[in-house]
Nucleic acid binder design. Structure first.
Lengths: 134, 134
DNA sequence: ATAGGGGCTGTAGCAGCTACAGGGTCAAGA
DNA sequence: TCTTGACCCTGTAGCTGCTACAGCCCCTAT
């Protein structure tokens, strides 16, 4: 019935080392141990790790995940605090998207300017050079 | 005429520690030194660091920058190799953009589902939970 | 002479893992 | 029963790309 760390990893798509890492930094509680000192997990731990994985997949930082876990542990708390964390994360994602697409535009322009001679005439190298800072 | 490391940093918008770091990892050559063991930079180094900065701003990894620098040093090389590095980077950027906007969509959906009760009814927490994996 | 603002080296820290080394444990097969 | 091999354990070091010290030296101005 109890899951080994390997089982838990397979069930959640998490590497064993990562699970131990999460435990070490206090994101996951220390599980009980078998006689042979193996970690033994149950449904609760599976749920918690799934939560962590899902939040990580949505791009939350480990600190944010920690905060979300804490909030989710106290079911009577105001949902607004959860919303605040998520919304701030969304704003950050939007910032990253904007930055990345600006970068993409610029990179594309540099690449497109290349007409394929030697490096001496290469627009990519030239675009990176000090003379073309502006 | 020679620039100190601080001058070079100001001229390129790079922190002094970062310049020393680039030197340590071999991205910048070791500059000559003054009698008092200060690094002394000239125009060449300024150009090289500007190149690095610009490439970094375009999201190239340090390894990619290293490769680009090597290519740009040999002006007779085929431009195609430069293009290949840049194009691969572009593809990577496109992948990241796609991932990030998928993530954004999902995150937005989770947030929008919140109607603001307690955590017990919070859709955000629920969406993160193990029951909603699919 | 001294105070400050730089410079120098070397090392440790950040996120978020990942990858060992060097051992112990456990179930299955010969 | 013994042994093989897959798994588990701890602890530590590595990855990217910096950043931030500590503890020192140098140079200029007053």
């Amino acid at each position: 019935m109890a899951l080994t760390i390997g089982d838990l990893g397979k069930a959640t798509g998490t590497k064993v080392e990562t699970i131990r890492y999460y435990e070490r930094i206090g994101l996951l509680p220390q599980p009980s141990r078998t006689a042979g000192n193996y970690r033994a997990y149950g449904e609760a731990e599976l749920g918690r790790l799934s939560f962590v994985r899902r939040a990580r997949d949505l791009g939350f930082s480990l600190d944010q995940v920690r905060a979300l876990l804490k909030l989710s542990d106290d079911r009577s708390q105001d949902c607004a605090r959860v919303d605040r964390i998520a919304s701030e994360h969304l704003r950050e994602v939007d910032r990253k998207l904007a930055d990345l697409s600006a970068l993409r535009r610029e990179l594309k322009a540099v690449i497109d300017s290349c007409n394929g001679g030697t490096v001496a005439d290469c627009r990519v190298i030239e675009a990176l050079g000090p003379a073309s800072q502006g």
